[in-house]
Design a protein around this nucleic acid. Structure first.
Lengths: 249, 249
DNA sequence: AAATATATTGCAAAATACTGCAAAAATGAA
DNA sequence: TTCATTTTTGCAGTATTTTGCAATATATTT
């Protein structure tokens, strides 16, 4: 088989599936993984696809995936995502909310993890679609322009039909006493529906949001099962949350 | 055998198969491999084919590029989008399907147009969110990695709950006799649901797809109200579609 | 921190390409 | 036709490219 031929086959696979694993390509094309890796490297240099760890994604996809250039406190959010990852078991069913912290969690999901994943967020959905082993189900609804999240009655109704093992949610504000609060009423309604749709709810939250509040209340802290922050467990900022029935990560 | 004759044979092979191995050519033409190599080298210098390590590929094969591919039919699709735009009235409720042609329509929607817009397609949804006066509602469901579209029973159920003024759909293949067909069964099911959810259905279709067909049938042409192509109304390719009850744009 | 998966690097074997050369074939003028 | 000239062809030796493997480094996952 000609090298050019093989590279065409790779491009076709990538265009068709948007993301492919090098191991799959090697098997399908019946060459060593080194050869596929070299091919993908060349094609990447020619801007025919984008090489990623373990595989390749199509240009179209790489362009849709939102940039995280100006994400506030990115490293903290990555740290939170990594901690939250430890809760996810293979073949479980989870829901990932919108927001940049939840998006980081979606990014961190390994390509080989088998998972069923619900989401309300367009960017999260885009990210999940790059993972070959994740079945992604989008909860439809009216899309909010600024948060790029499905909301409204149809989203709430769709959520009422499911029960996931874990949901990972963000919040605008959190306070040990007042619980989770938001700026936006519709967001509150949707988050309530998310919490109802999950056996366990995990709150992802950077430390800046601790002990802050706003007008509309999503829920009390005791309905949250786990709170994940980037802080070490003994950090004093977490003091107020310690003698509540919440697992702190 | 004359050299010229042999080179013609080589070109034929290359045109026919897009790729040839020098070893195969040498055997088939019953000359040494050095001779075919020299022939291929000459043909390459004359830009009749592209010589590669171990063989040769046709010009089309060598120039293939997914990104360039996308801009290829872009003008046609933009033309179609503009024509389709003329059907959309302010404050109406429309549904825009997935596919690159429908995405062009979404791109062309003016920023000041007030509209309620349903869609199943992630890229279309992203695009619609950039338009300040369009209310976008995403039809949820299991997302297909390939087409980035919501499909499956939940999408179909959600579609059963709505009735839009116009739906704009694409198709894999269309034939005057066989109607609309697709490669993928799930896509067919979803498109059927889309058609049922709309008062009027508009098919957006570049001329390359006319008179082609595949395994699974979406619907007959008579359930389509309007077909939009980039062709002029009097184009002969449209002849077969003219005495059906379809508005041609 | 350990274990696993993926990447990179250098290397050697195999396949392919290039060079120069001589024999064979074709060409063309006497 | 004949013979010199040119072109074409195949061969042998040498370079280059491609490929898979192993060792090492890096990244990722547990």
């Amino acid at each position: 088989m000609l090298k050019e031929e093989r590279q065409h086959a790779i491009l076709n696979e990538v265009e068709l599936h948007n993301r492919v694993l090098l191991t799959d390509l090697a098997e399908k094309l019946d060459v060593s993984i080194d050869t596929v890796r070299r091919d993908v490297k060349e094609l990447d240099a020619e801007d025919m696809l984008v090489k990623v760890h373990g595989g390749a994604v199509s240009l179209g996809f790489a362009n849709y995936s939102p940039s995280r250039n100006n994400v506030y406190a990115l490293d903290k959010k990555i740290a939170i995502g990594k901690k939250a990852m430890s809760l996810i078991r293979e073949n479980s069913v989870v829901l990932i909310d919108g927001g940049t912290t939840c998006l980081e969690l979606a990014r961190l999901l390994p390509a080989n993890l088998k998972l069923t994943c619900f989401t309300l967020s367009l960017p999260v959905a885009m990210e999940l679609l790059t993972k070959p082993n994740i079945e992604t189900i989008f909860i439809g609804g009216t899309l909010s322009r600024d948060s790029q999240i499905a909301m409204g009655s149809s989203a709430i109704h769709a959520l009422s039909q499911i029960k996931v093992d874990y949901s990972f949610i963000g919040t605008g504000y959190v306070d040990a006493e007042f619980g989770l609060t938001e700026f936006d009423w519709d967001v509150v309604q949707t988050k309530k529906a998310v919490i109802n749709a999950s056996k366990k709810t995990v709150l992802l939250c950077i430390s800046e949001k601790l002990n802050s509040q706003h007008r509309f209340k999503t829920c009390d802290l005791n309905v949250i099962n786990t709170m994940v922050t980037e802080l070490e467990p003994w950090d004093e900022k977490l003091e107020a949350f310690k003698n509540m029935n919440i697992q702190l990560l």
